[in-house]
Design a binder for these strands. Structure first.
Lengths: 338, 338
DNA sequence: CTGTTAGCGCTTTCAG
DNA sequence: CTGAAAGCGCTAACAG
């Protein structure tokens, strides 16, 4: 391995000068800079990040924590897309990204502890938000820089997060259904433990309220995220005496399953039932029918969270931020007039 | 930050003893071990990974390189799934995982150089395999431990890789179609730059040959991966005077698009056309019809590549390995007799 | 079984 | 504008 000393020797200066050249210290003459850089190139010198981190007592690296992966929920294209967004900003800032996956909550917790205590990273991005989350509590207690993608369960004003206005989006997309003449509208969501589900559902309810439409408990279904492809949800629906004519589904991937089940029952979308959902992942444009869905700008969620986190790692006094990424409804073919 | 010295002081031993306790060196008495561990717990001590890596001149970390992300191909659920597989092994081995995403090939190349030269990682997993890939060449020249998921373009016997037998899988799944009475069988694949496409296609061709079915150039379509949801592919198909009755599609996600387009043209699957594909990602069971597809065991691909890489980082003389993950055809509803 | 010492590669005062 | 020296936290001979 070629070190700073080798470069120093070759270019006839001291190691400290080389170090300054690396940092592009203005107090070094252009001449020596040139000389040193030439030597670096010749030798193929690259600074050793561990040595550097050791003295800097900090790491230009962030940890990205995926939700626990016991189920297939991780197969959601949401994740690669948000990683892309994070990666882009990370890369521009010359940071690196540690990815942490884990089967169980406990495993994840241990892993985060390791990342934090071992000085692996100088900040953490949580790709989920759950109630009573040990990881969140730990990070807060440690006063360690972190960002939640989504809405924190507690201490909302103390934890920086980047989120969509899921309430408003839920309301708006439900209103779209209402405006199209629907009044019997159902909601199918993933686990209520996830805040995003709640927010979208609450938006849905608010839209009904405003329109003077009564809630029907039997129209609200929570299916385990991705489990059984929405089979239970649709079976439940079928057991009802009057079917809804519109469906608000909290995730494109769930919609895909619902669409499939609905067809099995001979129910056509959008002729018999209209359906709207959330996320606008790639596949939502290639389903039949193509989905009218809320584009939540996943890439941007990732990019902004990385940006905010990096700022925070660079300045501990950075204030707590809430960053709301605007959404946009994408109108396609899954809705018709009622 | 609490260091090894603090622990030493509290427990009344020297730093090196503490170090030995951490490494669970057998030459330390159980008594002192207990004493030291107690102090570590009290103080909340955790070893600093940078200091450790610095002296060890190695890093228990691997870099995972995603393909360039100019298109939406990354939204393929393949990726989160393979990351899960890698993560699991990484975690058990107490390693960490650096994730590298990049827009362009050049960006990725720079990033890999950084990871390697800067001693960020001690091995690399490439989640793609492309012809004339600078990254592969670089890693080879550096004699840096790395694994390709897929088949290397060149130096196949020198580069460890984990792959499926895509040729055989392609042949077998095509045979399934043939056994069901089909003889006009088309192939729709992603970019031919990707080896996986070629292998699957060659398997398809071999099956035709064996069955004495002539190739038809117009039945082989290469659509840019995911682009336009297979629209061009299906349009091309429609322009033909005689349609195929069976379709081998190289990726579940492409199948989804094809399914959708076919429906648009009023062609029913499997009644009018049978369709088989590859990967068996979650969504392939919730499409309509559910897909008959090759389960390539994505998770296992990830896990085995991580395992092989870790072995290689721990023993430079580990021989070059080719690891073939068995596949399994999952029969569902997208095929019917012809 | 344990302590002393040197040093990993780099940055950063402090001198000059 | 540049060099010498100290030290980041840890490990690994080498002594004892």
């Amino acid at each position: 391995m070629v070190t700073i000393k080798d470069v120093a020797k070759i270019s006839g200066v001291s190691p400290s000068t080389v170090s300054r050249v690396i940092a592009n210290n203005p107090r070094i003459s252009e001449e020596t800079k040139k000389k040193v850089r030439k030597a670096m190139k010749e030798l193929g010198y690259h600074p050793n990040v561990n040595a550097r981190n050791l003295v800097a007592k900090s790491t230009k690296a962030v940890g990205v924590i995926m939700p626990s992966s016991t189920n297939t929920a991780l197969q959601n294209p949401f994740f690669p897309e948000i990683l892309r967004g994070i990666g882009s900003v990370i890369h521009d800032a010359q940071y690196s990204m540690y990815l942490s996956t884990g089967e169980t909550e406990e495993e994840i917790f241990k892993e985060v502890q390791r990342l934090v205590y071992g000085s692996y990273v100088s900040g953490v991005i949580l790709l989920y938000s759950r109630i009573n989350d040990k990881v969140t509590d730990f990070l807060r207690e440690q006063d360690f820089p972190f960002i939640i993608v989504g809405k924190p369960y507690d201490y909302e004003t103390e934890i920086s997060h980047v989120d969509n206005d899921n309430f408003k989006a839920g309301k708006e997309i439900t209103n779209h259904l209402i405006n199209m003449g629907h009044s019997r509208i159902g909601f199918i969501g993933g686990s209520r433990d996830l805040f995003v589900t709640r927010d979208r559902e609450n938006g849905y309810l608010a839209a009904l309220d405003e329109a003077g439409i009564e809630h029907r408990e039997e129209y609200k279904i929570h299916t385990e995220f991705l489990k059984s492809g929405g089979r239970e949800a649709v079976e439940h629906l079928m057991s009802l005496d009057t079917l809804p004519t519109g469906l608000v589904v909290s995730d494109d991937l769930i919609s895909l399953g619902i669409l499939s089940m609905l067809e099995e029952y001979g129910i056509r979308v959008p002729q018999d039932i209209s359906l709207v959902s959330f996320n606008n992942v790639y596949l939502s444009e290639i389903t039949r029918p193509a989905l009218t869905t809320v584009d939540i700008q996943i890439y941007e969620l990732g990019a902004q969270s990385a940006k905010a986190l990096i700022e925070k790692t660079q300045n501990k006094n950075e204030p707590t931020k809430r960053i709301i990424i605007p959404y946009k409804i994408v109108y396609r073919d899954s809705v018709s007039k009622c």
